[in-house]
């Protein structure tokens, strides 16, 4: 991002954003509720376009991407939403395979990998359940599995532990740390300081604080 700003109306809620997520890095984005963390993430996967400045995703200016290019870019980005939206009429296994389906890849040819991934996030027994039948933690893990099925370069997670207990939070964190060790770039938006401290014990994480519409490096209190 270079001097990027965004606002839904005349007043910008994010401004003067300048930072770079290096490949393979691990970042936390923290800040109070309403600070603009979700908006920041949306700028990162071209759901929103900066009103001024530039957001460059994989070398391409996000403002110049047409819908097809946005789709192709998103195939390289795994997004875990706080509210974990799924297609409720499909079993969770098909939801996890959805990025393969929409990319035109035959998910049945990758059954073994898919089953392995579902087992890795601990959902083998729930693979045929519909999304509304899953608990909050199971939905978060399913969303994470869906986010990484395409082997993305960048993983964006918006409050991934917001609806789960501490034990499940640590488990999800371990999964994200493991992905980072595989070379994936990870950016997690959270206001859970305990989670950040737990992560710092496992990976080298950089913490960014979002306040007053601006982003800055967090202090040593973390």
């Amino acid at each position: 991002m270079h001097d990027a700003a965004f606002g839904y109306g005349a007043e910008p809620i994010l401004s003067a954003l300048s930072l770079r997520l290096a490949p393979g890095s691990f970042h936390f984005l923290t800040g109070p509720s309403g600070a603009g963390k979700t908006t920041f993430l949306k700028l990162c996967y071209a759901e929103l376009v900066a009103t001024t400045g530039a957001v460059t995703i994989f070398g391409e200016d996000a403002a110049r991407l047409d819908r097809d290019k946005i789709a192709l870019t998103r195939q390289r980005i795994g997004v875990v939403h706080q509210d974990c939206e799924f297609l409720d009429h499909l079993p969770i296994r098909e939801n996890i395979a959805l990025p393969l389906t929409v990319a035109g890849r035959d998910s049945s040819a990758q059954d073994a990998n898919l089953d392995e991934l579902i087992a890795w996030v601990g959902l083998s027994a729930r693979a045929q359940a519909r999304p509304p039948e899953l608990s909050g933690g199971e939905r978060q893990r399913a969303a994470l599995a869906r986010a990484i099925i395409m082997d993305p370069d960048l993983i964006l997670a918006d409050e991934p532990t917001g609806n789960v207990d501490w034990e499940m939070s640590l488990r999800l964190l371990q999964l994200l740390c493991a992905l980072n060790k595989m070379g994936k770039t990870v950016l997690i938006a959270t206001h859970d300081m305990a989670l950040i401290r737990a992560a710092k014990a496992q990976v080298q994480a950089r913490v960014l604080r979002l306040a007053g519409g601006r982003v800055s490096a967090a202090g040593a209190d973390l």
Partner: peptide, 16 residues
């Protein structure tokens, strides 16, 4: 609309 939003989120092209 929710189906479309989810499909776009996971990289579906509008043509698809």
């Amino acid at each position: 609309e929710q189906v479309i939003r989810v499909m776009r989120l996971v990289g579906a092209r509008d043509t698809y």
